[in-house]
Design a protein around this nucleic acid. Structure first.
Lengths: 345, 345
DNA sequence: CTGTTAGCGCCTTCAT
DNA sequence: ATGAAGGCGCTAACAG
C-alpha cells in the first residue's frame, strides 16, 4: 500500500541507504544515481513517513498553540483567529506544522502540554495569554522546552515573548485625544488581571500626567459590561458632574458595548463623547460612526511569535537574554469617532 | 534523557513487553505486576513516544483542518474561530490532536493535504469550505482518505458533510418578516459562488412564493460591499420606487455594512427598513439596534464535524451512503432590528 | 501470565 | 560513491 524507501531502492536497483542519501541531499552521491532515484520516487509516488523520520531524528517539525479557555477571552475570537493565521503562515514557510490545543482548566492545559512535549509530538509551544502565575510556564521553563509567549509576563523575566508596547500605544492614543483638544478623558479597562489592561492604563495615566491633565478615579471604569450592562455603565458615566469628553477603550469589542449604551441614551459620538479603541478589529470601521483604533498588528504578532519560536527550536543557544522581548509596532487609525474638537468651557 | 519502556522494564525487573501490556491495559496481566509497573512509570516520569507508537500502529490520532485562504473568507474570522473551538474540543475528548493548515492557493493546499496524509501525519481531514470543483476533494476521495466537509457540495454527493439546512433557515427568517407584516422584502447575498449564498437565496424565494409575495430582481443585491461601498449600495437600494420594508442579509458581518450605510443616509432601523441576518455573531447583539439573526450553531457544527470524522476514521465501514449528511439545527434570534410591523399602504 | 523475537520506515555509523 | 548493519521506541505475534 505505502511506498517506502525500500521499495524505491529495489525498483531502482540501489540500496536503501542510497535512496535515503538522495532524500537528504547528501553531497557524496553520483548525479546520475540521484536523478534516477528521484525519478523513480516521483513515479512510484513516494512520500516520506514523517513518524519514522521523527522517531530517529528526535524532532517533529511541528509546534503547538495553546488556546486560552473561553472564559479568558475578552479579546474576541477575531483576535485569536488573526493571530493563528499569522502563526500558521509563517510556520508553513519554515516547514513546520501547527497543532492546536486547549484545556478546560489550567490542569488540563498542563496535561496537554506535557503530553505533547514529553510525548515528542511537538518541538515547542506558543502561549496565547499571560496569566500571573502559570504552572504551564513553570513546566516549560524548568524542563527547558522552547516556547514563546504572546503577551507579557512580569513574573517571568527572561522568557521569549512577542508583544506590543501597550504602554506606548495607550500613551499615543491618549495624546491623540489631547491634541484634539480634550482635557477630561476617561478610560474603560478590561479585566484587571490581564497585563494588557494594566499596561494600557499606565500609558493613559502617563499621557495625562505629562500634559498636566487631571485623572479622576471615577473616570476609570472596568469594562466587563459587554452585553446588557453597557447601557447602565454609560448611564452612570455620562451623569458624572463635569463628565469626560473623550474615552479610551481598551478593546474595540468593548467599544461596541459603549457605543450601544450611548446610542440608547441618545448621545452622539464624537460630539458628546469621543472614542478611541484598541486592536482595530475589522468591524471597527463598519460601526456607526467608525471607531478610531490602535492597530496592534495582530497578524504580525502571530507571524513573529512563530518565527521566534522556530528559531529557538533550531538554534537553542541564541537566546542570551537581552533580545528576548520582541515588540511589534502599533499605529493609530483615526476615524470619525475621534474627529471632533470640543470647545473650551 | 528520555525515559523509555525499556528503562521502566529494567527498573521494574520485568520485560519490556510486560510494560507495554500494562500500558495498553492488556487483560492477561497480574494485578500485582501492573500496579508495580505503573508506580515505577509514574516515579520515572515515563511518557509514551507518540511517534514510535504511530509508526507501528499506522495511525496518528490526529486530524487536520484546512483553513480557506483569506480571500474566501467572507464569513469572518469569528466564524472560523468558533468552528475551530468546536472541533478542538470534541477532538480532545476523543483523544485526537488537531493540526491546522492552509495554503496560499489550491495547489498549495493540495500539496499540504497530500503531504500530511501520505506522510501519515494525520488520519483525516476537515474541510472548511465548499467550492464548486475541488482538487483537494478529488484527491481525498480517490485515495479513500477519511474527510468531512463543513458545508455542502452539490457536485460530490456521497461524501461526509456537516451543514445547516440553509434553505430552511432562510425560509424561516423570511417568514418571520412576513409574519411581522412585511410584504416587500429584499435579499442581500454573499459571493454567488458560495453554496451557502445560493441556498439562502433559495429559501428566501421559496418563502416569498409560498406567501404569494412578489420578488423583484432589483431587490436582490450581491453584498460584497463590506467596506466603503455600503453607503452607495444602500443609497441605490433605498431610492428604488416602492422599495422593500425589510431586508434579509446573508451574513451579520454584511449587516453591519448595511447598517452603516443606512445610518449615513439617516434611515432608521427597523422603522425604515427591518433587518434579519445570519450567523448570529457575538456583535449582533451589540450593534445599534441589535440585529435579529439566525443562529446556525457554529460551535456545534465544528463539534459534530470532528465527531463524524473521528468516527469515520475509527470505523471506516459505517458510511453506507444514507446517513452521510449531518444537519445542525438553526434558530431565529429576534432582536430590535426586526421588531416593527409596517403599516399597510 | 510473562519473555523473546521481529519488525514499523527511516537515518547513521562503519565498512568497502 | 555505495552497501550493510544497527537502532530510534513501541507493538504484536509467537512461545513458553
Amino acid at each position: 500500500m505505502t511506498v517506502t524507501i525500500k521499495d524505491v531502492a529495489k525498483r531502482a536497483g540501489v540500496s536503501p541507504s542510497t535512496v535515503s542519501r538522495v532524500l537528504s541531499n547528501h553531497p557524496r552521491i553520483s548525479l546520475e544515481t540521484s536523478r534516477k532515484v528521484k525519478e523513480i520516487m516521483e513515479e512510484m509516488g513516494y512520500h516520506p513517513n514523517m513518524m519514522a523520520k521523527s522517531l530517529v531524528s528526535k524532532t517533529t517539525n511541528s509546534i503547538c498553540i495553546i488556546l486560552p479557555k473561553p472564559a479568558e477571552e475578552l479579546f474576541s475570537n477575531l483576535f485569536f483567529m488573526e493571530l493563528i493565521r499569522g502563526i500558521v503562515t509563517q510556520a508553513g514557510r519554515s516547514g513546520f506544522d501547527v497543532l492546536i490545543s486547549s484545556g478546560a482548566n489550567e490542569k488540563e492545559e498542563l496535561e496537554a502540554v506535557s503530553r505533547l512535549l514529553k510525548g515528542r509530538r511537538v518541538d515547542g509551544v506558543i502561549l496565547l495569554y499571560s496569566r500571573k502565575d502559570d504552572s504551564v510556564i513553570d513546566f516549560l521553563e524548568s524542563n527547558g522546552y522552547p516556547f514563546v509567549l504572546v503577551g507579557r509576563s512580569d513574573r517571568y523575566e527572561n522568557i521569549l515573548s512577542v508583544d506590543n508596547d501597550n504602554v506606548m500605544a495607550a500613551f499615543d492614543a491618549t495624546n491623540h485625544l489631547i491634541t484634539m483638544g480634550h482635557e477630561r478623558i476617561g478610560f474603560v479597562s478590561g479585566p484587571p488581571n490581564l497585563i494588557v489592561s494594566r499596561d494600557r492604563l499606565a500609558g493613559y495615566q502617563k499621557a495625562m500626567e505629562e500634559s498636566g491633565l487631571e485623572i479622576r478615579p471615577e473616570w476609570i471604569v472596568e469594562g466587563e459590561f459587554l452585553q446588557d450592562s453597557g447601557y447602565r455603565a454609560m448611564s452612570f458615566f455620562m451623569n458624572l458632574p463635569n463628565r469626560p469628553t473623550a474615552l479610551l477603550v481598551v478593546d474595540d469589542m468593548i467599544s461596541f458595548g459603549v457605543l450601544r449604551g450611548l446610542n440608547e441614551l441618545k448621545y452622539t459620538v464624537p460630539q458628546d463623547l469621543a472614542l478611541v479603541g484598541f486592536n482595530n478589529i475589522p468591524l471597527s470601521e463598519l460601526s456607526s460612526p467608525p471607531i478610531s483604533s490602535i492597530d496592534i498588528g495582530i497578524y504580525h504578532l502571530g507571524y513573529t511569535a512563530s518565527q521566534v519560536l522556530i528559531q529557538a527550536i533550531q538554534q537553542p543557544d541564541k537566546d542570551i537574554g537581552y533580545t528576548n522581548r520582541f515588540i511589534i509596532p502599533h499605529r493609530l487609525i483615526v476615524r470619525e469617532s475621534s474627529m471632533y474638537s470640543p470647545g473650551r468651557k
